[in-house]
């Protein structure tokens, strides 16, 4: 279990290195998919299946489709992968930096502190994170209203931003 956990965390960092090292947007989106998948694994092994499911469905299903769509908009003839020279240079610099910082901060930690939520309630159907999210419908109703309002606001923001009918090359017909 510990080994799997370390593997997930390592791949999570590696995915962010893949995003941050400035490849073309397609490959950066691929790195983001890797990060999201590993994050789901980490959340599940900490005992939060509902949040992990939300991350997988909403994030991968919704957000990355949109990003893939706009990566098509920004297509370029010779995309840079992680094999090309400047990208592999920054990948190496980032990995070295992470290892260095990790070497400084490592230690002072023992494995039995690795707790997951609701450990003693194996036979319960209702997990802790699910109950917490459900509180958004009762005592956290204000937050729910604010989030819904912000999503509505974003609709207007996007409509106003992409409206520009009479300027530029791409136009609404």
């Amino acid at each position: 279990m510990t080994f799997i956990m370390y593997l997930l965390l390592f791949l999570l960092i590696l995915g962010l290195v893949a995003v941050a090292s400035n490849p073309s947007p397609y490959f950066a989106a691929l790195g983001l998919v890797l990060v999201a998948g590993m994050g789901c694994g980490v959340l599940v092994s900490h005992g939060g299946p509902f949040l992990s499911l939300i991350l997988f469905l909403i994030y991968l299903g919704g957000m990355l489709v949109v990003f893939a769509y706009s990566a098509a908009l920004a297509a370029e003839p010779y995309p840079e992968t992680w094999g090309s020279r400047p990208v592999i240079m920054s990948v190496m610099i980032y990995v070295l930096g992470v290892l260095l910082v990790g070497g400084i901060f490592w230690g002072g930690w023992y494995e039995s502190s690795w707790m997951s939520v609701d450990e003693l309630m194996e036979f319960s159907i209702l997990r802790g994170d699910m109950a917490g999210v459900a509180m958004m419908y009762s005592s956290g109703g204000l937050m729910l209203i604010i989030s819904a309002w912000v999503l509505l606001l974003t609709l207007f923001v996007v409509l106003e931003l992409t409206r520009g009918l009479n300027r530029g090359a791409l136009r609404a017909v």
């Binding site: 959340l43 939060g48 957000m63 990003f67 958004m136 912000v150």
Partner: peptide
């Protein structure tokens, strides 16, 4: 989410959802 799960304060676990909603707004903008 990990803060919520590790400290067993499950009433806080709505906050990652709120964060997700707001980051979706930011991404769409």
């Amino acid at each position: 989410s990990l803060w919520t799960l590790q400290l067993d304060s499950t009433s806080f676990s709505a906050s990652p959802m709120l964060l997700l909603a707001f980051s979706a707004c930011e991404a769409s903008a």
